[in-house]
Design a protein around this nucleic acid. Structure first.
Length: 443
DNA sequence: TCTGGGGTCCTAGGACCC
DNA sequence: TCTGGGGTCCTAGGACCC
């Protein structure tokens, strides 16, 4: 904890949904739900209009549809989210070189790296200007900003500021600020920890402050217990860390229907190994450990891993090991989710040649013929499209060989709706072909 | 029609080494 | 002549976060 409130936490409000409302004027002011639209999808982000119906992140999409049937249900457009996030991260980088992104929509900034300490009014002014810049440069998104003497307090502050606000927790007032909050508000206290704390009579952070460190360690283990003991007293000296090295890379897929065919699963593992290795190579890393993860129909899951003597970035090696690990599992009851991951990442190859006798050379499957999870048609709801005659629009819905498109962009008013055959030659997937991101980079 | 995907961190037990 | 002790690595599972 510092003597000044020099840690800033920024959180974009209902980020994915807000980007959709920005780019789809007909959805502004309406409930929008972004997430997996398949049978087993979950909600990534709900707009504030949807939240009033009790829809929230991580909720099963089936439940969200029950609670808010008239919402717009969209699959995500991650390129658009990444582009918008980059704008915000750039603005944060102008405040300080010490920016630690937590996700596309959240980051810490260490303001102590900037010249002299700022007092309360100066901090509030800086935050207000930042929020105005974010809204200006992103085309209308809002952010909540928290300021405090540590990461923990800054994060709590931005939570208290939501939505669309600023909150400064002045140094010296931290403990009284957090005391009234539910213990669940402390990062790291999830459902399981909260259940254990409840048994000790803990509801609020103030209750937590009554427990001794020994009691917490006994209940939660050494690391968590000591950590929680300190956070309950607003004692947090974790630094803002701009660069965090990648520790693992993984790909996993939940299937629309459980799969019990081991040959099909092996084919999926092979494709996933390819995806993992592509990212491994792009990061210029090599991996020593390969892990396979399986989720059963009852939602329990197991993992199997193997560590090599050397590190590899070869698809054949990762795919072969993944398939061998999968072979060791009895899949006849069906598999709900399959995943392949690598860890033990290093920057140099140390690959012993004897590590793998590549079995029968076998045909290398083309990317397109490997099994992929399919969620409905090739026209995901919410996706950008471009029509030769009508211009840019987005997929409103599809089915029965038809796709319905609404023609509007961030800069138009609500636009008209037209329906086409799914194979209409005038209709192309993706944003306007010749001006990618133009509206976000006016210069 | 319950429960995604990509991560990080922690714990605990066993193997192994000195 | 029953079985110390510490350290490290590996595996597996689980909690948690966005």
């Amino acid at each position: 904890m510092r003597a000044t409130a020099s840690v800033l936490h920024l959180d974009l409000d209902a980020f994915f949904a807000a980007v959709e409302q920005r780019d789809k004027p007909s959805l502004r002011g309406k409930p929008v739900i972004v997430g997996g639209l398949g049978l087993r999808g979950v909600v990534s982000t709900a707009s504030y209009e949807a939240r009033t119906f009790g829809v929230g992140s991580a909720m099963a999409m089936s439940e969200a549809r029950r609670r808010c049937p008239h919402a717009a249900f969209l699959s995500g457009r991650f390129d658009a989210y990444r582009a918008t996030s980059a704008i915000v991260m750039r603005l944060l980088g102008e405040l300080s070189p010490l920016v630690e992104p937590l996700s596309l929509d959240e980051a810490f900034v260490d303001l102590a790296a900037v010249e002299r300490p700022l007092d309360g009014p100066a901090l509030l002014e800086l935050a207000a200007e930042l929020r105005a810049q974010v809204t200006q440069e992103t085309g209308g998104l809002t952010a909540s900003v928290g300021l405090g003497s540590s990461k923990f307090i800054a994060k709590v502050a931005s939570e208290l500021a939501k939505p669309n606000g600023i909150r400064l927790v002045s140094p010296g007032t931290e403990i009284e600020t957090i005391a009234a909050l539910p213990a669940r508000a402390i990062p790291g206290v999830g459902p399981a920890t909260m259940e254990r704390l409840s048994r000790l009579g803990v509801v609020t952070v103030a209750d937590l402050q009554q427990l001794s460190e020994a009691e917490l360690v006994r209940e939660l283990g050494k690391s968590s217990g000591e950590h929680l003991f300190r956070l309950a007293r607003a004692d947090d000296d974790r630094p803002v860390e701009p660069e965090r090295e990648t520790k693992s890379i993984s790909v996993e897929d939940t299937f629309e229907h459980d799969i019990a065919d081991s040959a099909v699963l092996a084919g999926i593992a092979e494709r996933q190994a390819g995806q993992v290795v592509r990212r491994l190579v792009k990061a210029e890393l090599f991996a020593r450990t390969v892990t396979v993860k399986v989720r059963w129909p009852d939602f329990s899951s197991v993992s199997r891993s193997r560590t090599l003597n050397g590190a590899t970035d070869r698809v054949e090696v990762v795919a072969q090991i993944a398939k061998e690990l999968l072979d060791g599992l009895e899949v006849s009851q069906g598999v709900r989710l399959l995943g392949v991951g690598v860890s033990g990442l290093v920057q140099v190859a140390q690959e012993p040649l004897f590590e793998l006798e590549v079995a029968q050379p076998g045909r290398v499957l083309e990317e397109t013929e490997l099994p992929r999870p399919r969620h409905g048609s090739g026209w995901p709801a919410g996706a950008d499209v471009f029509h030769a005659e009508f211009g840019p629009g987005w997929v409103w819905g599809s089915g029965l060989g038809r796709v319905t498109v609404r023609f509007e962009t961030a800069d138009t008013g609500p636009g008209p709706v037209r329906t086409f055959a799914v194979d209409d030659p005038n209709l192309a997937a993706g944003p306007r072909p010749d001006a990618a991101g133009a509206e976000l980079n006016p210069e």
